[in-house]
Write a protein that binds this DNA or RNA. Structure first.
Length: 326
DNA sequence: AGTTATTTCCGGATTACCTCA
DNA sequence: GCTGAGGTAATCCGGAAATAA
C-alpha cells in the first residue's frame, strides 16, 4: 500500500510518506515498522496455509508486518517458542515444560490460584499438568522485581497476593480480575512478540505453559500488544504528517509571497509582461519548475528584479530555448 | 456448486483494575 | 489517606475466513 498525499494541484507526483516513516522512526523513536496492505492479504494466506494442517490454524513465523518497539535483541531463529532462554535466568535455568521432572519452569502465575484450575483452562486444552504445584515449585528468580526483594520475601509476598485473590474469588466468582503480569512474563512475551506478532494455537499453548498463564491470557496479551503497536505507529505517522503539513504551509506562504512580488512587478513594469511566454519545464531531479528565459527577463527589465526562486531555477541547462531568448 | 450455520480469530472500543505521583 | 492520570489486562462486539453439513 502506498499512501499518496495529494496536495491539490499536482496529483501526478504523489507525496508518499510511509516509505519515509521507518527512517524517521528509526532515528527518532527507536523502532521501525513497515506498513502495507499486504498485511491482511498475507494474513489470509497464512491462515490458508496454516489451516492445511489439523491443529495449526494460523502460523506467523514470518509476519508481514515488521515492527520493533523495543531495542533489538535478536533471538536466534533456531530457537522455537519452546526453547527460549530467559535472559534473567542463569544458563542452567532454562524454562522447562511445566510437567517436567526437573521442577524448573514453574513460573509464578500471577493469575492462577494456587490450587484450583479453572474451567477455562480445561476448555483451552491447556490445563497445566500440575496446577497445584505453582507455589511449591516456584523456582524463578524474581529478585529483580519489587526493589530487590529476597526470594523468600518475594515468595511470601506473592503468596499473600495469591491468597487474597483466592478470597476475592471465593466471595464472588464473577469478579473481574485484573492482575499484572510479572516483569519476567512481560519480557518473555515481548521477546516472543518480536519473533512473531501473532501466534498460532500451538505457540499460544506453549507460551502459556512456559509462563504459567492461561492461553487466553497470552492471546489477550498479544492482541493488546498489537493494538499498542498500532497506536504507536499511528502517533508516529501523525507526527510525520504534522511536520509535512508545516513544511508545506511554509512553502505555500513563500509561493504566495513570490506571486505577490510578480504581480507587483507586472504593474510597475508592464513591458516585462509583454514578452513571449516563458517556457516552464519541470526539473527531473528536484521536480521544481524552471524558467528558461532568464536572460530575456534580465535584459528586458534592465535590472535583476526577478524573484529569488526564479533565479534559483536557472541552474538547469535548457538548450532548446534560444528562441525565447532572442 | 451454492447456501447456511458454526467455529475461530482478530481488531476496535471500552471497562475495570492497579500503580504512582 | 485521597485523588486523578496513565498503563494495561480483560471484556464485549462485530467482521472475516474457513469448514462442515
Amino acid at each position: 500500500m502506498e499512501l499518496a498525499l495529494s496536495l491539490g494541484h499536482d496529483a501526478s507526483t504523489p507525496f508518499t510518506f510511509l516509505d519515509k516513516t521507518p527512517k524517521i522512526a528509526n532515528k527518532d523513536l527507536g523502532f521501525r515498522m513497515a506498513l502495507g496492505s499486504s498485511f491482511s492479504a498475507a494474513r489470509s494466506e497464512e491462515i490458508k496455509e496454516a489451516r492445511g494442517g489439523q491443529d495449526n490454524r494460523r502460523t506467523s513465523s514470518d509476519p508481514p508486518v515488521q515492527l520493533d518497539l523495543l531495542p533489538l535483541v535478536p533471538v536466534p531463529r533456531t530457537q522455537t517458542a519452546l526453547q527460549f532462554r530467559l535472559p534473567w535466568l542463569t544458563d542452567n535455568m532454562v524454562l522447562s515444560e511445566p510437567g517436567s521432572s526437573d521442577g524448573l519452569g514453574k513460573g509464578l502465575d500471577v493469575n492462577r490460584l494456587p490450587v484450583v484450575a479453572t474451567a477455562e483452562e480445561t476448555e483451552d486444552g491447556a490445563a497445566l499438568s500440575s496446577p497445584n504445584s505453582t507455589v511449591s515449585s516456584f523456582h524463578m528468580d524474581f529478585g529483580a522485581r519489587n526493589g530487590g526483594r529476597s526470594k523468600r520475601d518475594h515468595l511470601e509476598f506473592e503468596l499473600e497476593r495469591a491468597s487474597s485473590r483466592a478470597s476475592d474469588d471465593d466471595e464472588n466468582g464473577s469478579t473481574r480480575k485484573k492482575l499484572r503480569l510479572s516483569k519476567e512474563q512481560s519480557a518473555f512475551l515481548e521477546e516472543s512478540f518480536k519473533e512473531h506478532s501473532t501466534l498460532n494455537p500451538k505457540q499460544k499453548v506453549a507460551l502459556a505453559k512456559q509462563l504459567n498463564l492461561r492461553p487466553r491470557q497470552v492471546e489477550v496479551w498479544f492482541q493488546n500488544r498489537r493494538a499498542r503497536t498500532k497506536l504507536k505507529q499511528t502517533e508516529v505517522d501523525c507526527e510525520y504528517l504534522k511536520r509535512c503539513c508545516e513544511t508545506l504551509t511554509e512553502e505555500n506562504r513563500r509561493l504566495q509571497k513570490e506571486l505577490q512580488e510578480l504581480r507587483a512587478l507586472k504593474t510597475s513594469q508592464p513591458f516585462y509582461m509583454q514578452l513571449p511566454a516563458t517556457t516552464l519545464t519541470m526539473c527531473p531531479s528536484c521536480e521544481r519548475v524552471a524558467t528558461t528565459s532568464n536572460s530575456v527577463v534580465s535584459s528586458a527589465s534592465g535590472n535583476n528584479t526577478r524573484p529569488r526562486t526564479m533565479q534559483s531555477f536557472h541552474h538547469h541547462a535548457q538548450p532548446n530555448n534560444k528562441a525565447a531568448a532572442s
